[in-house]
Design a binder for these strands. Structure first.
Lengths: 245, 245
DNA sequence: AAATCAAAGTGTTTTTTCAACACTAAACAG
DNA sequence: CTGTTTAGTGTTGAAAAAACACTTTGATTT
């Protein structure tokens, strides 16, 4: 049996999934049932998180959480923050939950947040008893603990990263159309983009490889498929900063 | 006496200071002396760090560390990462140090990193027995623990932040010249900038306020002084992302 | 008092990027 | 064969970026 490193450190994963229409996030339905009456006391949503084992780095723990939920490995994972406010576990539901699960409700837990990016179609969720589902990020209003704050922080980090690094591809299947890529930028950044200008811009990215292959089974002109080349990206990425205050 | 939250969580501060010439960082000279012979076994450098108290948020702890060293409050502080690799304390010197200071050398410590920005001239270091000094960032080659990695990570975060947010002013005294500001960008980003183009660019920043005041005591044409206006910045900052892949 | 030194300050031109905008082409559905 | 739907494609004017050199001002030196 693996030993837990320390009951005051946990890793929370904000697992984003894109389905060509909207950005989703994996959330766990946390139901607290009264032990005596068997009645449901409340139900709310949390991010997917877990403690960290003794022989595990933070990133290993994040990867493990992701693997346990999705069965996927080698998924893009990025640390975006550590959350340690003194009041982060003090909401009434959270206190009840901590007591019910046998933990000290006055304990502090430090959470290190990682976000990861998936094409929802790649995933068949492994529920493992827990009620884990995709929820549209735009519709999430509040979460247990300080998880809403953590989610917003992840979203902000994702947006910023998306603007400067080619990570959008992580949210798409291997082969994708330019319209899908554009939609992704629009959804994540919350903007509308001009189709022609968008295509001009990405035409400059050498690591976006056009394939001799087209969409199939669509009731309109089928789009050309593209894929991302990590090799080309790593060869051509510029190390230097643009000076662009 | 305050209780330490948990001996496996610490906060490390990367305190950057700018002196109009180069970027510096505050480091602690860690000297290990043999208890029996009194001989110095080794001496190396660490970042300034500390554990976190029970009633303290991460940011409070970072602010406290900074205050203890410099006596300054309300200093810009930014979290840039959490470091929890399994091997981060395993170098021989680090092991010896941990043993000598009565700690379990096999313990894992999670460090949350904050960087902060100062004009070196604002600071009179409060040594408090420890040997704390400014070192030019460019000349730091290795540090104890994984602190070199942490420093590089802080530097990267600072550079990125500097490109998109007006945080350069935090590294300068209240009143400064445009040449000093330019030098700051050059030093932090490691680039050379054209004076005229630089001035054209910053002329667009409304929050950079020209004063009716000039440099004194310089053996050349004295430069006009400027200051940063947080108010103007907060009024005019744009919430929207530029789409700039 | 004049000459020298050192950094301040200032414009123009060319190139590149950004933003706005509308029609034709291809596949499937009916 | 017609309609529907999305793919795909260029031009122009405006703004920003990049390249580039001389004059001004105050303090210091002679």
């Amino acid at each position: 049996m693996k030993k837990v490193l320390n009951n005051t450190i946990s890793v929370d994963c904000v697992i984003f999934g894109f389905d060509f229409e909207k950005l989703n996030v994996l959330l766990v339905d946390r139901v607290l049932v009264d032990e005596k009456t068997g009645k449901e006391l409340f139900s709310d949503l949390t991010l997917t998180g877990n403690h960290i084992f003794e022989d595990e780095s933070l990133e290993d723990a994040a990867a493990r959480i992701l693997f346990d939920l999705t069965g996927l490995e080698n998924i893009y994972l990025k640390q975006f923050g550590a959350f340690g406010d003194t009041e982060r576990l003090l909401k009434p539901n959270d206190q009840a939950w901590l007591r019910a699960s046998g933990r000290d409700p006055h304990s502090r837990i430090l959470s290190v947040g990682y976000y990861s990016l998936l094409a929802t179609e790649k995933v068949t969720l492994k529920w493992k008893g827990r009620n884990v589902k995709w929820y549209p990020v735009a519709e999430v209003t509040d979460l247990a603990f300080d998880h809403y704050t953590i989610l917003q922080s992840a979203l902000q980090a994702l947006r910023r990263e998306l603007l400067y690094e080619p990570i959008g591809f992580e949210l798409l299947p291997e082969k994708f159309t330019l319209s899908q890529l554009q939609k992704l930028y629009e959804v994540v950044l919350g903007v509308e983009l001009d189709k022609r200008n968008f295509r001009k811009k990405i035409a400059r990215m050498k690591y976006l490889i056009p394939l001799d292959e087209k969409q199939k089974g669509v009731a309109h002109k089928p789009a050309r498929l593209y894929m991302f080349s990590r090799e080309v990206y790593e060869k051509t990425r510029k190390e230097v900063f643009d000076f662009n205050i």
